[in-house]
């Protein structure tokens, strides 16, 4: 089996938002819609403070709450774990938006552009009325993965089969791959590091793993 997952190394992320821009560029999302965010989290009290940059988005959960509540079956889970939305089935009820604990879903009511009512040439190229009035979210660049797989490429290793945000990361903080592959990059990273999954206690089984420290007893992968 294949189970795609993402790894975000919190020690390395510098909050440059390149992944955010790469996502917007690759998916043509309108203003205000960001399928990939990088949070700026401050913690502690002066002088003992920390600042952590945290990439977030759809966690492609193993037990996705958005899918069970969807009244039209527009939200589905593929065999490889990727959560998809069928824009032709979605009625835009917004139930999945309130069911998602990660605030990963969006609904726009009309086409908007970065500078007023006239779309830029790049926006014109990406205009898709099918995504208006329905729920949208990160797809793990599923089209890119599928096209790459058809060419015999390996997601997470070959850029042409890997999500745009991962390809663009300047700090090597984002990784993507098959968590069921024991020799795969994300499996090795998760095995070698202390990790957590956000809001794990809610039971959705998110598939973005955050690395926060190397395991002291294991020097296998860094």
């Amino acid at each position: 089996m294949t189970r795609y997952a993402m790894v975000a190394d919190l020690r390395k992320c510098v909050g440059c938002q390149t992944c955010t821009i790469a996502c917007k560029h690759a998916n043509g999302t309108p203003p205000g819609v960001q399928w990939r965010w990088v949070l700026d989290v401050e913690a502690g009290e002066f002088p003992d403070v920390t600042r952590t940059f945290v990439p977030v988005g759809c966690m492609h959960c193993s037990e996705p709450p958005c899918m069970t509540v969807c009244p039209t079956t527009a939200t589905r889970q593929r065999a490889d774990g990727i959560i998809t939305i069928d824009y032709d089935l979605c009625i835009g009820c917004g139930y999945c938006i309130v069911a998602c604990p990660y605030q990963a879903r969006y609904k726009t009511t009309h086409l908007t552009f970065a500078y007023g009512e006239t779309p830029l040439p790049s926006e014109q190229a990406y205009q898709d009325f099918g995504r208006v009035g329905v729920a949208t979210k990160c797809t793990f660049c599923v089209d890119r993965i599928d096209a790459g797989l058809q060419r015999g490429l390996v997601p997470g290793q070959d850029p042409d089969a890997t999500p745009a945000c991962v390809n663009s990361c300047i700090a090597d903080a984002l990784h993507f791959g098959d968590l069921d592959d024991p020799q795969g990059n994300v499996t090795q990273l998760v095995r070698a590091h202390e990790t957590f999954r956000m809001h794990d206690e809610l039971g959705a089984g998110p598939n973005i793993f955050y690395l926060w420290e190397r395991k002291s007893s294991d020097d296998a992968v860094g």
Binding site: L10, Y210, E213
Partner: peptide
């Protein structure tokens, strides 16, 4: 959003 741990 929440972090279970802040990074080293």
């Amino acid at each position: 959003f929440a972090l279970a741990r802040t990074p080293a």
